[in-house]
């Protein structure tokens, strides 16, 4: 398991009640992990303006623009789960997965997250996870098989 997703980058439950706060929260985790500079969070808002990052199945994946790749130090992702749905351009979001990717270092784990979230049974399990540790372990399990 690489350091793309560490336990400290998983937060349950998230504090945000709005989309903008959720983007800030997911971005904050990436900044705190030392993966990106704070300017990357601005790029995340920039990116969100062009096309919504809502993916379906309660998942949104805020991330920066192509132009902001030089504000990324290393590939990392953050995962925040919300107890109450956050309104994301009219869609209900329970999971915000912040992404910072350079040189495709994040693709493997992102692909696994994608496959988990494309299966509604798996999403139910993630929603049912009782704590950040439990959620992290579930994601971890995917990463290891």
């Amino acid at each position: 398991m690489s350091d793309v997703l560490t336990r400290s980058q998983v937060k349950v439950p998230g504090d945000a009640r709005s989309k903008d706060d959720a983007i800030r929260e997911a971005g904050r985790l990436l900044v705190d992990a030392g993966a990106v500079s704070p300017a990357y969070v601005d790029a995340m808002f920039e990116r969100e303006k062009s096309v919504s990052t809502y993916m379906g199945n309660f998942l949104a994946i805020p991330h920066g623009t192509n132009e902001a790749k030089d504000t990324i130090g290393r590939s990392a992702i953050s995962v925040v789960r919300y107890d109450a749905p956050v309104d994301w351009d009219g869609n209900e979001v329970r999971f915000a997965v912040g992404i910072a990717g350079v040189d495709n270092g994040h693709l493997e784990i992102l692909g696994k997250i994608a496959i988990v979230f494309s299966d509604t049974d798996e999403v139910e399990k993630l929603l049912a996870a009782g704590s950040a540790d439990e959620l992290y372990d579930l994601l971890q399990a995917v990463n290891e098989d």
Partner: peptide, 8 residues
């Protein structure tokens, strides 16, 4: 950006 949505 080719890093998020399309990758997933």
């Amino acid at each position: 950006a080719g890093m998020g949505s399309s990758a997933m």
